[in-house]
């Protein structure tokens, strides 16, 4: 665990942390009707993820279970739940907020640290294959324009995104 400045363990504190984050504002509106879970394509396939449970656990203050577990990474971001939620809980955005908090605490799945590394190094999260890049003229495609990776790095230096990898390294 990272040494948190605000190591509040009360229930209230965790939902406060979530509601004060971009995307997490609406979590407390949840009244557990299950529309999200029923709408969720993932939840129907695996018991590892149920958005209703993630919200309930978060509201009950089960911070560690939520942040270090794998459930929050199983949302497929399809927004079906968010569209249908009768309480206007922005569920998919809440999951983003929870992931953001987890990342801050150093809980990053490998694939996501790879994404981060690619983005920081290449400005893309999917690397271009040299083979296809060479083939472009043959296919009648214009050559690829340069990527604004320098600009991105300047952005990262403000948001602290460039630190994500290091934190992961420390954590592991």
């Amino acid at each position: 665990m990272k040494q948190g400045k605000e190591e509040k363990t009360t229930n209230q504190a965790f939902s406060d942390v979530i509601t004060s984050r971009l995307g997490g504002e609406t979590i407390t509106l949840c009244y557990q009707c299950g529309t999200c879970a029923s709408s969720c394509p993932v939840a129907r396939i695996t018991p590892r993820f149920n958005p209703r449970e993630v919200i309930k656990l978060s509201l009950l203050g089960e911070k560690d279970e939520v942040l270090s577990g794998d459930a929050i990474w199983l949302c497929c971001s399809c927004y079906n739940c968010q569209e249908r939620c009768p309480q206007k809980v922005e569920i998919a955005d809440v999951i983003y907020a929870l992931r953001n908090i987890a990342v801050k605490e150093g809980n990053i799945p490998n694939i996501y640290s790879e994404f981060a590394a690619e983005l920081i190094n290449e400005g893309r999260i999917v690397p271009i294959s040299k083979f296809l890049e060479k083939k472009r003229p043959d296919l009648g495609l214009p050559s690829l324009k340069p990527v604004g990776v320098d600009a991105l790095r300047k952005i990262f230096s403000i948001t602290g995104f460039d630190k994500i990898k290091q934190e992961k390294a420390e954590a592991s």
């Binding site: 971009l22 992931r99 953001n100 996501y112 981060a116 983005l119 990527v147 995104f161 994500i164």
Partner: peptide, 26 residues
């Protein structure tokens, strides 16, 4: 256009929503 980058899709938003929005805005 030159200098376009990743659009910052959900994987980036998952890492940091604010960074994601900034990249898109860029």
């Amino acid at each position: 256009l030159a200098n376009m980058t990743c659009c910052a899709p959900p994987p980036v938003q998952s890492l940091d929503l604010e960074t994601g929005l900034s990249i898109a805005a860029y």
